[in-house]
Amino acid sequence: MTFAALVAILIGMCLLLLRALIGPTMYDRVLAVNSFGTKTVLVLGLLGYVMGRPDFLDIAILYTLINFVSTIAILKFFRYRSFQVPLVRRTDAASRAGDGNA
């Protein structure tokens, strides 16, 4: 059962990889990379049970945090074209700096 779930998630990883490779817009790629990170976390969790080492769940939690932070960083880059801008409501200067598409 656990192994079947692992195989299903691995197939999902392959499909997401395809989307990241051929994705026409960059939003496709961002979404693909984010979902790929989620799939990695799930694979780690399931691998722990398949290999008899459930301790891998701790590592999976760490990966979740990293995936979340890096997705926020990428989206902030899209919005402001910089990482050195505080995440506040958009002002006029910020809206001139980045309009979302490149």
């Binding site: 990889l17 693909a32 990695t40 694979v43």
Partner: peptide, 24 residues
């Protein structure tokens, strides 16, 4: 940009693979 995104995917896959071969 696609290259940067794919390098992120590369790191994720290799990190998962390191865990698989027990190099935590």
């Amino acid at each position: 940009f696609a290259i940067v995104m794919l390098s992120g995917v590369y790191s994720l896959v290799s990190a998962a693979w390191y865990i698989l071969v027990d190099a935590v």
